[in-house]
Every structure is written in structure tokens, then in C-alpha cells.
Design a protein around this nucleic acid. Structure first.
Length: 265
DNA sequence: ATGGTAGAACGTCTA
């Protein structure tokens, strides 16, 4: 079986690329982030036409996550217990955002996660990001405690570069989010809870994201911020992984590349 | 030059 995660940066703009990727790659279960649409706007038909089912949550033009599977979608869960809320405006009550959806697909508990960006050091959005990650960690630890043999994949755009080598120049990020110690600690806490980054060993030195501006992609100035963290039972099945850099090329590319994981049967 | 690009309530937020 083949899993993948991909921040598509608008599923409506990118639907032809996403379906072509599924057909070309043979991915069975794909987690996508930043669909940027409501549920009623999601283009289900192109996916159904090639044999995939979709579980999506999208509340407005921001965020939006989905699991797309051709090996079944069961027990769909939107968000997780204690997931923090957010309000972008003063005077507007905070509400949960469309940043997490889980579903069981072919025996794997697949999560599509879009971790809050954090914006800038000192921004309330960074505190929100850290609270969101802590609540995720607490849930993920609980899932594993309830069933140590569970095959769980925490995949998505984590908006964290865990190691200095995960950005092209640490000096550029000296006063930025994504590399700060609290963010890295929050990521490490999920790993310590039992979820392994199964992709890094197969893709040393590679990035998953390149900003649209400043010619970042041709200059090979990217970041590794998209991850598939797997529970022990699932990590034991991993036979390989790759980052599909080709998908970042050409007109109409997302700013993120798909991250793929191969599993033994 | 406070820049650049992209995508979403088509004006402004988000990344």
C-alpha cells in the first residue's frame, strides 16, 4: 500500500494535478491540506471517477483538509478532542478551524493535519500553534495507549522545520517561526510519544516546500515542513519513501511537493 | 525599491 500527504494550496485550482498525481503515483490513500473551500465546493466527481472516496472538512476559504482513499474510508473524525479554537478578528468568538481530519483506510488510521502557521515570533497565532500541537500530542499519545498495535499516520503540513538542515539558510530564519525552540520541542514531543518520521531516512537533505516568491524553487531554497509520522506498528511496515519534487515544477504547481510512503502488505 | 507570488469573500487576508 502507498500513502501520501500533500498541501495542494486550493483543491479547486489544482484538481487536475491531484487526480493526475494519484493515477501516476498509484497512491492508495492521500491526505491533502489547504483545500481552501467549503464542503459544498469540494470537487468530488473527478476523484470518484478514478475510484477514490473523499472525506473533507472545509468551513471557508482558509485551511480545509481531506483524506482521499481507494481502499475505503471508515470512522471519519473531524478535529480532535480539545482542539483549540481561533478567531482572526477582535470581537469575533474563537471557533475550531478545518485543520484535522482522520479516517481509517485499508487498516491505517490516516490523519490529514494542517498545523497553524504561527506567523511571527510573539504573534498570538504562534501561541495557538503550540497549544494546537500540544492537544494533538495528547490525543495521539492516547490513541497509542489505547492500542499499542494501532497503525496511525499523522501526516500533513506541520509548519515546522525540526532540524537546521531543514531550511536552506538558518540565518534567514534567525527571527522567524518554524524553527524556534518551542515549535521544535512541540514536534519532538509527538515523536517522543511514539510517532516516527519515516520519510527522512529515505530522503536525506530534501525539502518539501519552496516559497512562490524570490525564485526559491529554482534556487533550491526550500524547507522540510511536511511529514508523515507513524506509530510503531505502521513504521515497521515502511519499505520506502520519497518526496515528489517533480510536482513543484511548471505552471500551476502547489508550493508544496507530495510526500509518499510505501508500506509492505 | 519594505519589493516578490499565489489563491481565496474582489478587497484584503493568509501563507
Amino acid at each position: 500500500m502507498r500513502l501520501a500527504t500533500w498541501n495542494v494550496n486550493s483543491v479547486r485550482t489544482r484538481v487536475d494535478r491531484v487526480t493526475a498525481f494519484l493515477e501516476r503515483s498509484g497512491v492508495d490513500v492521500l491526505a491533502i491540506q489547504e483545500t481552501k473551500c467549503r464542503d459544498d465546493q469540494f470537487p468530488h466527481m473527478p476523484f470518484e471517477a478514478i475510484g477514490y472516496e473523499v472525506a473533507h472538512v472545509g468551513l471557508n476559504q482558509w485551511n480545509g483538509v481531506a483524506v482521499i482513499s481507494r481502499v475505503g474510508i471508515e470512522d471519519v473524525q473531524v478535529g480532535f478532542e480539545g482542539m483549540p479554537s481561533w478567531s482572526s478578528k477582535e470581537g469575533v468568538d474563537p471557533a475550531p478551524e478545518a485543520r484535522a481530519i482522520g479516517a481509517t483506510c485499508g487498516g491505517v488510521r490516516m490523519w490529514s493535519l494542517y498545523v497553524p502557521n504561527g506567523r511571527q515570533l510573539g504573534d498570538p497565532h504562534l501561541a495557538y500553534k503550540l497549544e494546537w500541537l500540544d492537544a494533538l500530542r495528547e490525543n495521539a499519545a492516547g490513541w497509542l495507549a489505547a492500542d499499542p498495535q494501532a497503525q496511525i499516520a499523522l501526516t500533513g503540513d506541520w509548519n515546522i522545520a525540526p532540524e537546521d538542515g531543514d531550511v536552506w539558510d538558518m540565518a534567514v530564519f534567525a527571527h522567524s517561526t518554524h524553527v524556534s525552540p518551542p515549535e521544535r520541542a512541540a514536534f519532538a514531543a509527538v515523536v517522543e510519544a511514539g510517532y516516527a518520521d519515516v520519510v527522512r531516512p529515505h530522503t536525506p537533505g530534501e525539502y518539501t516546500y519552496w516559497d512562490y516568491t524570490q525564485l526559491r524553487f529554482p534556487r533550491r531554497e526550500g524547507m522540510r515542513i511536511d511529514f508523515a509520522l507513524c506509530s510503531p506498528a505502521l513504521a515497521a511496515r515502511v519499505t520506502g519513501a520519497e518526496i515528489d519534487r517533480q510536482e513543484r515544477k511548471g505552471k500551476g504547481a502547489s508550493d508544496h511537493a507530495p510526500v509518499l510512503v510505501d508500506l509492505a502488505d
